[in-house]
């Protein structure tokens, strides 16, 4: 009984390692292999020739370079929108039960909306406002900001709940206004969670594919660009791009590890 359990455990661990590592190896291999060789049959497990041309093309081709910059800008702006609005919502939710109820029901209601049901009509609205498919990606940044608010709010909620009410009351007796208490006491005390929220929202936007595909049809961010490269057969650049795209996420998981795990699942959505 115990032996077979142990065997199952070893098998599961081996499976996990293979599922996590082998694909990454193959991706890395493709990114440094000439394209002709990648299409060889049977597939090469170890590259016979090496090249850096795919990585060079990522920075040399205009379309790719501007997609990297656009993705960074959209992710940064949307993370700021979501964290500011999420902090407001989280603070109210932590201090009042009515706000809590309104907040939770809005957030869970939003989770029920399929991306496609929002994105198509939203495209029409963005077009009338004149920011559909804008080169700066501002329309997408607003959408990503909105879908990331639940993530930011849930991350910050726990932090605000943990701040003792006595501290706020003391500041109140000293004559500070509620806004001032929020800005000078609550926000600084929650700064670790604010950093976490910013990082999570940044990554949420950086990874987001659906809205990006529909809202930035020609001025693309990285995920839709990677999609077109993959589907239309540019294996080398697609692999190099995919490796670059993983950098922020992998850094976060490896560096921040355990403290982020709870938060990662809190706002996960497709």
């Amino acid at each position: 009984m115990n032996n077979s359990l142990k065997a199952a455990r070893v098998a599961l661990n081996a499976f996990v390692l293979v599922a996590a590592v082998l694909p990454l190896y193959l991706l890395a291999k493709q990114s440094v292999t000439p394209e002709l060789e990648t299409f060889a049959w049977p597939p090469h497990w170890i590259p016979h020739h090496l090249t850096l041309s795919h990585f060079i093309s990522v920075f040399a081709v205009n379309e790719l370079r501007s997609a990297v910059l656009r993705s960074l800008a959209v992710a940064a702006i949307s993370a700021m929108i979501a964290t500011v609005l999420g902090a407001m919502l989280a603070h109210a939710m932590a201090r009042s039960s009515i706000a809590q109820r309104i907040g939770f029901s809005t957030v869970s209601g939003i989770r029920l909306l399929p991306m496609i049901a929002v994105a198509i009509p939203l495209g029409i609205i963005l077009a009338t406002v004149g920011i559909y498919d804008s080169p700066t990606g501002i329309g997408l940044a607003i959408v990503h900001g909105a879908i990331a608010i639940p993530t930011a709010a849930l991350t910050l909620y726990a932090a605000f709940v943990a701040i003792p009410l006595e501290i706020e009351e003391a500041a109140w007796i000293d004559g500070a206004s509620p806004l001032r208490i929020f800005l000078t006491i609550d926000l600084p005390m929650a700064r670790a969670s604010i950093a976490t929220a910013l990082i999570l929202c940044f990554i949420l936007s950086w990874d987001e594919f659906g809205f990006a595909l529909l809202v930035q049809q020609t001025n693309r961010t990285l995920p839709p660009l990677l999609y077109y490269y993959t589907v239309f057969g540019n294996v080398g650049p697609a692999s190099a791009l995919a490796l670059l795209m993983m950098i922020p996420a992998i850094c976060v998981v490896v560096a921040l590890g355990p403290s982020l795990r709870g938060a990662l699942t809190a706002g996960s959505s497709r």
């Binding site: 661990n13 996990v16 390692l17 599922a19 996590a20 590592v21 694909p23 990454l24 193959l26 991706l27 950086w206 990874d207 594919f209 995920p223 990677l226 999609y227 993959t230 697609a238 692999s239 995919a242 795209m245 993983m246 996420a249 992998i250 976060v252 998981v253 490896v254 590890g257 795990r261 990662l264 996960s268 497709r270």
Partner: peptide, 19 residues
């Protein structure tokens, strides 16, 4: 093993799909 188990979720969805 724990890090390896979490890794597929940390990788952007589109990268997983490309792979």
């Amino acid at each position: 093993i724990e890090t390896a188990a979490i890794l597929p979720f940390a990788i952007p969805e589109i990268v997983i799909l490309t792979l």
